[in-house]
């Protein structure tokens, strides 16, 4: 038994990105806590969540970074893309503007992650069918054209939330099995041995202490 029945064999790093208010934090919360978080405040920063899942008999620990969606944080949240094995790109099916911005989110993701990073498109709030502003077909076509995996999900009802996270992991795991994902690459977003979520190095160098700071 590799790693024993209690252990996990891999750590996958995920990021969740998309416009403000599309429900990124609610998706994370639904996934880790199996609960809908009503009145979720805007994320000002990057939330961190973790869960162990089972993929093809392997225990995998997901470390999920849920980023702030506000435009003014865009420059800062770009720092978190590096080393993500999976990117969940979220829009709100009831707000077309959030869908229209996808190409910009996608280009950030492509520029800042590895070619092997699995990008999963999630059309959130599919429980609000009456207010739908983006058709399934349209988004599905966008996903296909850009080679993304895609589901419509609801953080409120939990529909397809589990699936999105698990399918992403499955795809990553396949990439490892196929050898497409090089575990030794520094930014693969996958660790083969358990470790702690340490300091998130936002840039290559270690902390440059300001000379006037004492700590």
């Amino acid at each position: 038994m590799s790693g024993g029945p209690y252990n996990y064999s891999y750590i996958f790093k995920y990021i969740i990105i998309g416009d403000m208010g599309v429900g990124k934090s609610c998706l994370l919360h639904q996934f880790t806590e199996k609960k809908f978080m009503a009145d979720c405040p805007h994320t000002i920063g990057v939330e961190f969540g973790t869960r162990i899942i089972d993929v093809c008999g392997q225990k995998i620990k997901l470390q999920i970074w849920d980023t702030a969606g506000q435009e003014r944080f865009r420059a800062v949240t770009r720092s978190y893309y590096r080393g993500a094995a999976g990117a969940l790109m979220v829009y709100d099916i009831t707000r077309r503007s959030t869908y229209n911005h996808l190409s910009s989110w996608l280009s950030d993701t492509r520029n800042l992650t590895n070619p092997s990073t699995v990008i999963f498109l999630i059309g959130n709030k599919c429980d609000l069918e009456a207010q739908r502003d983006v058709t399934y077909e349209e988004a599905s076509k966008f996903a296909e054209e850009n080679g993304l995996m895609f589901v419509e999900a609801s953080a409120k009802t939990g529909d397809n939330v589990e699936e999105a996270f698990l399918e992403t992991a499955k795809k990553i795991y396949q990439s490892i099995q196929d050898g497409r994902l090089d575990l030794n690459a520094a930014e693969s977003g996958v660790q083969h041995k358990p470790s702690t979520p340490g300091r998130n190095n936002l840039s290559n160098d270690n902390q440059a202490n300001k000379d006037n700071c004492s700590c």
Partner: peptide, 13 residues
Amino acid sequence: ILVLHLNGGKDMF
């Protein structure tokens, strides 16, 4: 924008 990092946890802006 300052990034306040919690070791082993989330970051706040």
